[in-house]
């Protein structure tokens, strides 16, 4: 897991502000949150980012990230 650097940026994750290391990728973000990339779907600024591309997309200040999965429902 990537070591937190002194430089962080603020992003919104699931509607909550969160400080993440500057330059972190979506894959690294999932790592810091303890999430298995196979178990969540990532939406980055309203665009779905598929699993193979998660390591290629870096987050920028103010980005909106949604992490969703299936729950019980009718």
């Amino acid at each position: 897991m990537k070591q937190a650097t002194s430089e962080t940026i603020d992003v919104m994750v699931n509607g909550e502000p969160r400080a993440v290391p500057a330059g972190a990728t979506l894959l690294e973000l999932l790592g810091t949150l303890g999430l298995d990339p196979r178990a969540v779907v990532v939406e980055h600024n309203r665009r779905i980012v598929r699993r193979p591309a998660l390591g290629d997309v870096s987050v920028a200040p103010g980005d909106a990230i949604e992490l969703v999965h299936f729950v019980g429902g009718g």
Partner: peptide, 15 residues
């Protein structure tokens, strides 16, 4: 099934 946000405080809960 429904699509909802992952609960970031309970990430060990199995999907």
């Amino acid at each position: 099934v429904a699509v909802r946000r992952v609960d970031l405080d309970r990430t060990h809960e199995a999907s």
